[in-house]
Amino acid sequence: APIILDTYRVIADFEKTSKHEITLHTDDLVEIVEKNENGWWFCQCESKRGWIPASYLEPLDGPDEVEDADPNYEGEEYITIQAYKAEQEDEISLVVGETVEVIHKLLDGWWVVRKGDENGYFPSMFLSKAGK
């Protein structure tokens, strides 16, 4: 049977920054082949195929629907596997090997994490589930 892929609309121009990404423009329609939880989605648009940030897409059917999971205020333990220095004021800076609590897993790959009294957005690709 044919595989039906979800169609998404591009909501802002995106310029590729590495080889396996593709450049897309506002209102382009893309089919999603793979949704990676790090926030990079593999898509095809006409003859182009490559990765683009999930945050630049909205579902064609039901753009107002929230696809993100609900926040979990109890938190889920993760360990940082790479350091990240906050570039925006709503982000959190962490070094390698810190234990944090993930409060909200967003599809765009930027998760809300809590460390002590602090919280902020952190790249999910720099986190590994504790105990794994």
Partner: peptide, 22 residues
């Protein structure tokens, strides 16, 4: 075959999207 995703974090949502989230 699908290549591995980029090794850098994806960019934060564009300003258009942040307005919608707010």
């Amino acid at each position: 075959s699908i290549k591995n995703p980029p090794q850098n974090p994806p960019p934060r949502p564009p300003p258009e999207m942040r307005r919608k989230q707010a």
